[in-house]
Simulated assay, not measured.
Amino acid sequence: MTANSEPSTCTAFAGPRRIASGPLAEVALAVKRAVEGGEAAPVLVFDDGTSRPVEIDLRGSEAEMLARLAPAVPEVPAPAAPRGPGRPRLGVVAREVTLLPRHWDWLSQQPGGASVTLRRLVEEARRGGEGRDRLRLAQEAAYRFMAAMAGDLPGFEEASRALFAHDRDRFDALNGAWPADIRDHARRLAAAAFAVSRPA
Rank of each mutant, 00 (worst) to 15 (best):
A173Y: 01
A114R: 14
R136N: 09
D105H: 11
A81N: 00
G129L: 11
E130F: 07
L69K: 02
S21L: 04
L118Y: 01
A142V: 10
R120F: 03
P42D: 01
D47M: 06
G131M: 09
R119L: 09
L137A: 15
E39V: 12
D172L: 12
L135Y: 13
R198N: 00
A165E: 14
H166L: 04
G176C: 02
A159K: 08
R126C: 04
K32M: 10
R68W: 05
G113C: 13
A191C: 08
R170L: 09
A165D: 15
R136G: 07
E55C: 00
P16Y: 00
A180G: 10
E130R: 12
R89M: 14
L69F: 00
R83D: 12
V93P: 07
V45I: 14
E39K: 13
D47R: 09
D57Q: 00
E26N: 14
R198W: 03
R18V: 03
A190F: 06
E96Y: 01
E36T: 13
F171I: 04
V93E: 13
E36Y: 09
L100V: 08
H185Q: 15
G113M: 13
S5I: 10
S8A: 04
V97S: 06
N4M: 10
P23C: 05
A150T: 05
G129R: 12
R102V: 08
V93Q: 13
W178C: 11
S61E: 12
H185V: 05
F13V: 02
R188W: 05
D181F: 03
P74S: 08
R102N: 05
A191S: 15
A200N: 10
R183A: 09
A14E: 01
L44M: 07
R134Q: 15
R83H: 07
R134D: 07
S51F: 03
T117I: 01
A30M: 06
A148G: 10
